[in-house]
Simulated assay, not measured.
Amino acid sequence: MNVNVTDLHRREQRFPAFDAAGLAGTSFKPEHFREIDADEAIDGFFEIHAENYMGDGGMPHRLLESIRARHPVSLHGVCMSIGGEAPLSRDHLDRFRALVDRYEPAFVSEHLAWSTHDDVFYNDLLPLPYTKATLARVADHVDEMQEAISRPILLENPATYLLFEQSTISEQDFLREIVRRTGCGLLLDVNNVFVSATNHGTDAWTYLSSFPLHHVGEIHLAGHAEDADAQGRKLLIDSHDGPVADAVWTLYERVIARTGPVATLVEWDADIPAWPILKREAMAAAEILARQAPNRMLGHRHG
């Protein structure tokens, strides 16, 4: 099923209909609220994890409502378990839909991963084999999610640490076919590409060269940690606990040279730094975007 026209955009909106296309943004952390609120120069967007806002009220919603009144927001799900064998949770879908209706996000996204099995929730985004059976299941789950929220989603490529012998479809072709079947878009996480390629001994740019870039509606950047596997080989972890690595910036610049300016989000979810540090990371992305659209940069408003 292809979702094109949505009830969300037909009804009167509660918040300004900001255009986030081509902007740089950051994760919204409540500890940064005062500095963000006082910063009149911010021209970007903020991402929130949906599961952090599934309560009905309280301080988190008061802060988010204030942010949303001035800036676009991206709603990023981490627990839908789109790749799981079990049906999607109806309760979770209802809560997710309520957030979409409440905050009218510029982008809505989820992961190509699974996190639940037999009523057990795993606090991780786990990979799945790329087969015809999983392709059909993921497409059905994307359709179900899009039907529930009355709008298309962006599906994010995962960071992976192992490969499945059962896989018969490349990740790029798997995502390409999901887009064709469901009408969803893609969220390209460049750090995930670099992490996965390093872990599997492949080339990140070769992967990106065959990625369906024309379906990408948002890009993620993040930091990663370096570890070693049982054989002592380098193993990268998608940790989101530090600045974006130079190699990831290089890949990102090459992607933007092909796609033009695509809304880009810097994720930083652990060991969260002071706001000026996080803002500086987003401004680095904005400077790259500005080479394609020089009239818009985070931190600088232009007429």
Rank of each mutant, 00 (worst) to 15 (best):
D39N: 13
A293G: 05
P105R: 02
R97D: 15
D37C: 02
D173K: 02
R180L: 06
Y103T: 01
P261N: 03
D271P: 00
R258N: 08
L23M: 11
R68W: 03
P158K: 09
L186A: 05
G201W: 11
V266S: 06
R254Q: 10
T206V: 12
A282E: 07
A222D: 11
V179K: 06
T182Q: 05
S74M: 01
G44W: 09
D269T: 06
D118M: 02
E226V: 13
G217L: 08
G217P: 05
M54Q: 13
H111G: 06
Q172E: 10
A69P: 00
G183A: 05
C184G: 03
R291Y: 00
A139Y: 11
L265H: 00
L155W: 15
G232N: 11
A106F: 06
P105M: 06
P87L: 10
W275H: 06
H61R: 04
A133L: 11
A148I: 12
D271H: 13
A290E: 09
G242T: 09
V190H: 01
D37Q: 13
D119N: 14
T250G: 07
N157F: 14
F46C: 05
P152K: 15
A274S: 11
T134Y: 01
L88G: 08
A263L: 05
A197W: 01
V100K: 01
F28Y: 14
S150G: 15
P273V: 07
Q166R: 15
K132R: 13
E40Y: 00
T26F: 05
A204S: 08
M145F: 12
I256R: 05
A133N: 09
D229Q: 11
I169S: 01
E287L: 03
